[in-house]
Design a binder for these strands. Structure first.
Lengths: 362, 362
DNA sequence: CTTTAGCACTCCGAGGCATTGAGTGCTAAC
DNA sequence: GTTAGCACTCAATGCCTCGGAGTGCTAAAG
């Protein structure tokens, strides 16, 4: 476990860089000429052979070039690659396409995902967080017609969800409003995770209605509140992936797309993003990178997954990520996802601040 | 343009049937043996040659079997295929998976799409209609926090849409409620297409507030109403298609998937479904089939598209469709889509009836 | 006049084979 | 420690052959 010497490091970096670009196994001769190295192919061969021994490179078959192993990529992203900041043009381009939809969390994340996918050329995902610890701010039940109502739940985080429900036919609008007000008064300010059916019932009972009528409404209110806690996943650029050589075989492509649509899989990975930006191997940075085997499941095994989270003063507001072939341009992805995250953070901070003070950051 | 004689018809049907099953060009000898025909291969060859002359079949190359042309498929769906009703088991299966979500139009259509895709094995789409002629029933503006509000729009068709908007910071909840009530009172009952910004402003002015404050709110209200008229498209089973031989080449697969995601393309086709079930060639049935060239655009040219619409007493409530290779099992698709449509219609009728009478069709 | 058997012809696709080229590991010289 | 030289490996490519499934045509049979 001695660290790699400088020359091995630079050769490994060169191999990964080239492989990222060409997707072809890299040979010693080619490497020397492309990078104008000061050593001969034979030397490079020896070094590459060492790197293979150490587990950083692999050979598809004897007498082919070398390809980075998962460990090789890991070393690359952890200590070899250079992450350049975006150019001002790129920054303004992204900002323009992003700051349209800052009024609603879901919209903001959706467009973040779309921008990320477009600018990196890979598949991108975004997810609203679970909001267990967020406070309920308002709950309104509006009559649509006899027997049906819409329940609107507003959370402190500024999230709004609605849901159409059945209610007893003989309930009129005024009564419903009274129940709605009672529930809101009783629950407003509570954390979602603390709201139980009992709490809802207790709050609603103040409206002084026959139990029979009440129960159904309160139950629906309860469900609506619980449902506001559900997360949504957005995805973009899924079929951009079909353009990359690693997905030329339809089987691979199918496996990848199926995995993406698999219920909860992506959400699971996004949710696991460590709050402290602690990486699997103990490194510490504002994003998390999973490579190949590290996302072991199903069709994603030829892929890597870069994720990060948006926060406002500690509370999680959303997760975004980019999925690409293991051979993705990590440097580009990291800089782009970082910038999108910061822009999003900023936009949301303004949004959230809007609550307390009037007109400031503008 | 003389109609095909009986033998030609049955041979054409046999060819299409076989090709649907095998995806391989059909030869004369094979056809005879598989269908135990009473004539010799040579006769079949002559007939097939005629059918090719007439444009119903084509040859990928000399000395290969025949493949149906678009015209051949057209004849097949128009007058050759037999559509068998679903078995009771299939019916109950579909019913079970369908009738969970009848409270909300979007949910119903989404699950219809999912069921259709699962049972047919092809890609399925569904779309909520444009609602220009639907009446506005309610519009409520609820304060979330200073500077932000949620607008909830309820249409007579039972559709609910919400939207988060910015409002002037110094507006308080009570005032907003007043404006909201004024707007609702002024516009309720109007058709969406008749609601103009002028109408909204006129309605809102009754709230007697300073113009400056009012204008922004009313504009947002107007936008929210207009937006309620937007349609949503649901899709399911898109990558099921990658399993079929016609999409083994990644280029085709990519083309197909890109076409599906192309903004408005599918929506356009779904919207074109003729209200009277009048088919392109004047036939009359409760569904519409487009074959190959008939959906000329982009990546869909190897595909067929079967669509139908759900209605309640004449008003359009949604469109559903199945997209598959031209070589799809039309009979199966037609029977499935028909049953789903009827089930959906029924569910919605109950939903709509819920408005007027109390508890009946159950 | 229709059907069919027979036959020559076409063409795709699979398998075999040699060739090429990029790459490797090893050894010996620098 | 580095590098030139060399023998070796292996995938990819092109070429050839061959078999099979299919066709169209012609002539005989029904």
């Amino acid at each position: 476990m001695t660290p790699l010497d400088e020359r091995k490091r630079s050769i490994l970096k060169a191999v990964v860089d080239d492989y990222i670009e060409t997707a072809e196994p890299i040979g010693s001769k080619q490497l020397v000429s492309r990078h104008a190295l000061a050593v001969s192919p034979a030397t490079v061969r020896n070094e590459m052979s060492d790197l293979e021994q150490l587990g950083y490179l692999e050979q598809p078959h004897t007498s082919a070039g070398r390809v980075p192993s998962d460990k090789g990529y890991r070393e690359y992203v952890d200590s070899l690659m250079s992450v350049d900041p975006l150019s001002p043009e790129e920054e303004t381009l992204i900002r323009e396409r992003l700051d349209v939809h800052f009024d609603e969390l879901g919209e903001a994340l959706r467009s973040a995902s779309s921008v990320l996918s477009a600018t990196t050329g890979y598949t991108s995902v975004a997810m609203t967080p679970r909001l267990r610890t967020s406070q309920l701010k308002q709950i309104k039940m509006l009559m649509i017609e006899p027997g049906r109502a819409v329940v609107v739940v507003v959370l402190a985080a500024g999230i709004v969800k609605d849901r159409v429900v059945r209610i007893p036919e003989l309930l009129d609008a005024a009564t419903l409003a009274k129940v709605s007000a009672a529930v809101e008064e009783g629950l407003s300010g509570m954390k979602l995770e603390d709201i139980t059916l009992i709490a809802v019932t207790a709050a609603g009972r103040r409206a002084k209605l026959p139990e029979a009528l009440l129960n159904q409404i309160l139950y629906e209110a309860y469900i609506s509140i619980k449902q506001a806690d559900s997360m949504s996943v957005y995805m973009d650029g899924t079929n951009r992936m079909l353009g990359y050589p690693e997905f030329q075989e339809i089987r691979k492509a199918r496996g990848f797309l199926d995995a993406l649509h698999e219920e909860g899989l992506i959400a699971g990975y996004l949710a696991e993003d460590n709050p402290d930006g602690e990486d699997t191997d103990g490194h510490r940075r504002p994003y998390m990178i999973r490579i190949g085997q590290e996302i072991s499941l199903g069709g994603l095994d030829g892929c890597s997954f870069v994720t990060t989270t948006c926060r406002d003063a500690g509370t999680l507001l959303g997760s975004i990520g980019v999925i690409g072939p293991k051979r993705m341009d990590y440097s580009k992805v990291v800089s782009h996802i970082g910038f999108v995250r910061r822009t999003l953070d900023e936009g949301m901070r303004n949004l959230m601040d809007g609550n307390r003070n009037t007109e400031e950051t503008r």
